[in-house]
């Protein structure tokens, strides 16, 4: 037996539903070897999709261990990531303080610009000279404006630093999604503004540095055409998703998931939105891909569909059986 490609141990995940947490995954263990076709079954709401998203580096578990090709990709396993997470927590607090400060400054500005002059006008009988009214008003106005601008600037800087930290935290998972993982969703999730070819070629575009893409876009486009030919969409290259049937859209989604030659293809209820005939066609395509050596992890609630996999696991009570 080859060394495992993907290993998950003790995966836990809970969602907050009101005041009480909803524990969806309580300790899932899974090992996937290269070339395997694994189906995960379970009832609706059992956490199948959540598990698939965690395995596919789209989501993070609350606890547990995740390894791809022997390397951990759980955020908390890296010192740099732990440092970034701590810094992000501090900056998040600072961000909240700044938001409160900004709100207060807007209120002060309102006072300085509107209320104080109004009081000055109303109190002209009492305060006889305008300068006495105007000077504090002007000072307050400019001071408030200055403070407002400074607070806004600091807030923007904080947000930009936080964005950078988020990038650091997610770097490993971004890399996996970009290079090694491919996703097929139940609802296709194609970009409506792009045509079939553009949707398919997009992952290659994401994966290629700009300067390199500028000089060699044709290779990626050629590969995308080849994959679209394999999924039978040669005649549909310039059509938009809205002009395709459900089955065709899902085949575009599969082509997009495969264009960067991922090591694992994750499929979340790929036939869930298709009729029986289209579903059968799609499964035939997945089988064909698996036959060519593609590792597939599929989530489904349909036993007939799951039967086509090498191995079937059931998610019950938050654990895989």
């Amino acid at each position: 037996m080859s060394s495992p490609l993907l290993v998950a141990k003790g995966i836990q995940k809970a969602y907050r539903m009101g005041r009480s947490p909803l524990r969806v995954l309580t300790g899932c263990d899974l090992t996937v070897h290269a070339g395997e076709f694994v189906a995960i079954m379970g009832r609706s709401g059992s956490g199948k999709s959540t598990l698939l998203q965690i395995l596919g580096a789209l989501d993070v578990p609350d606890a547990g261990e995740l390894r791809f090709a022997g390397t951990s990709f759980h955020a908390a396993d890296h010192a740099g990531v732990r440092w970034a997470l701590r810094a992000d927590t501090v900056l998040r607090v600072l961000q909240r303080v700044l938001l409160v400060l900004l709100t207060a400054l807007v209120a002060v500005g309102f006072l300085a610009f509107i209320i104080v002059p109004l009081v000055g006008l109303l109190g002209q009988g009492v305060i006889t000279s305008w300068p006495r009214v105007l000077r504090p008003h002007l000072f307050a106005s400019f001071a408030t404006l200055f403070a407002l601008a400074a607070a806004l600037l600091v807030l923007v800087v904080v947000l930009l630093v936080r964005l950078l930290l988020t990038h650091v935290v997610e770097r490993r998972r971004i890399y996996l999604r970009r290079k090694d993982f491919g996703f097929v969703f139940q609802f296709y999730h194609l970009l409506p503004e792009l045509n079939v070819l553009e949707n398919t070629v997009l992952p290659r575009m994401v994966d290629t540095p700009s300067w390199s893409w500028l000089f060699r876009p044709w290779a990626a486009r050629r590969e995308a055409r080849e994959i679209l030919e394999r999924v039978g969409l040669t005649q549909r290259l310039n059509h938009r998703p809205s002009e395709l049937s459900g089955g065709e859209r899902q085949r575009v989604a599969i082509a997009r998931a495969l264009v960067h030659r991922p090591k694992i293809l994750f499929a979340d209820e790929p036939t869930g939105n298709l009729d029986a005939a289209a579903g059968a066609e799609l499964m035939a395509l997945l089988k064909q891909l698996h036959g060519a050596g593609q590792t597939i992890v599929m989530v489904t609630h349909d036993a007939a569909i799951a039967q086509q996999a090498d191995r079937i696991l059931r998610l019950e009570g938050g654990v895989l059986r």
Partner: peptide
């Protein structure tokens, strides 16, 4: 929002999406 999710699912980074 969904497009953002799609781009991120195929490897788009937070900075890239921003």
């Amino acid at each position: 929002t969904k497009d953002i999710g799609i781009v991120k699912s195929i490897g788009g980074s937070p900075i890239g999406v921003a």
